[in-house]
């Protein structure tokens, strides 16, 4: 069953999808030659990953993402400071295109700082500095000629606490990214519907798109934030403990959403919940900081490997709940 949201242009679904692609793709700085990741991952699930939720049941248009190459993210020797206090020590990590990468570790080990470095949010903290490079699609996002706003448009972020804009309706919340980034889209209604569907929220809010975003439950608010991030079609979606403020039911819905997005967007998720990391991610990185060493990666690799056969004894202790 499909429902067309108000579509002023009168065009059908094909036009709607084309609008999404044109609207956003046209604004992206022309990247010379994206690495050939499509051949490796043709928009489908990564081999060996849990079977994805059947998106076609909800989305008659088949696999959702318009045919865009998936883009990976890589950090090389990233260190970070707050003032003189060093919080991250030479973190190098590859986040594979279309995969869900989980960052786990005890509190205060620099996971969130690392995540915020990945879309240039770290520099907004007073006194914060960093070293190293972060490669999006093979290009450093900290190159002097790159605008932070441009980078953030391609690398979206979902925060720990759901933060829909209270002065906007659900519809306007989803469309807010376009307004904030100054993007013009031919068919905004279709884009809003697409984004809400991808975030798994459409069926719950379709009849009250003009209600204020703050009137939703916590879990719905968080999925609204995910939809908002997806509306500017980012290549990468960063999630900073997206479920820590939610109840178990809402957590499951958000995890379902992540599972649906996997293969469409590169996702990096910080979580304290090891079961969650095991459930949603394909790759995993274990961060650790002690009182005299800044945060660093102890072990990274396939999630299954980290959880079933950790190489480092500290990783084993952590994933088996012996500390942290």
């Amino acid at each position: 069953m499909t429902v067309e949201f108000v579509n002023p242009s009168g065009a059908g679904r094909h036009a709607a999808d084309a609008g999404v692609v044109d609207g956003i793709g046209g604004l992206r700085p022309a990247d010379p030659a994206p690495p050939d990741v499509t051949a490796e991952l043709p928009g489908g699930p990564v081999p060996g990953s849990p079977p994805p939720v059947d998106v076609t049941a909800q989305w008659p248009g088949g696999s959702v993402p318009p045919d865009r190459p998936l883009v990976g993210l890589e950090s090389r020797d990233v260190s970070a400071w707050f003032g003189t206090h060093k919080v991250l020590e030479r973190v190098s990590l590859r986040m594979r295109p279309g995969e869900v990468t989980a960052l786990i570790g005890p509190s205060g080990c620099g996971k969130s700082t690392y995540l915020r470095i990945l879309n240039r949010m770290h520099e907004m903290v007073r006194g914060a500095s960093l070293a190293g490079e972060v490669l999006l699609d093979g290009q450093d996002i900290y190159r002097p000629d790159r605008q932070p706003a441009q980078v953030r448009r391609r690398i979206g972020m979902v925060f720990q606490k759901p933060n829909p804009f209270p002065a906007m309706s659900i519809y306007d919340n989803v469309a807010s990214g376009l307004k904030l980034a100054g993007i013009k889209v031919a068919n905004k209604d279709a884009l809003v519907e697409t984004s809400l569907r991808r975030a798994g929220l459409w069926n719950e809010v379709r009849s009250r798109l003009r209600a204020p975003g703050g009137a939703l439950s916590g879990g719905q608010q968080q999925r609204l934030c995910i939809a908002r991030s997806l509306a500017v079609s980012p290549d990468v979606l960063l999630m900073d403990e997206p479920c820590s403020a939610l109840d178990p039911t809402s957590t499951r819905r958000v995890e379902d959403t992540i599972a649906e997005l996997q293969g469409q967007v590169t996702i990096v998720i910080v979580t304290h919940n090891m079961q969650q990391a095991a459930r949603v991610s394909q790759s995993c990185a274990f961060f650790l900081a002690t009182h005299d060493t800044p945060g660093h990666i102890v072990e990274a690799g396939q999630t299954r490997g980290i959880f079933e056969d950790p190489q480092d004894s500290r990783t084993a202790d952590y994933v088996h709940g012996r500390f942290g």
């Binding site: 907004m124 706003a149 953030r152 979206g156 606490k161 002065a167 904030l180 991030s229």
Partner: peptide, 29 residues
């Protein structure tokens, strides 16, 4: 105005002026 809203706006690729005009001022209206 909660700083989370400003962060959300920046994370969506909003510039400072657009953040103020579209998020901060309407919230504080």
């Amino acid at each position: 105005v909660p700083s989370g809203l400003r962060e959300a706006s920046y994370a969506l690729g909003g510039s400072q002026i657009r953040t103020v005009l579209n998020v901060v001022l309407p919230t504080a209206r």
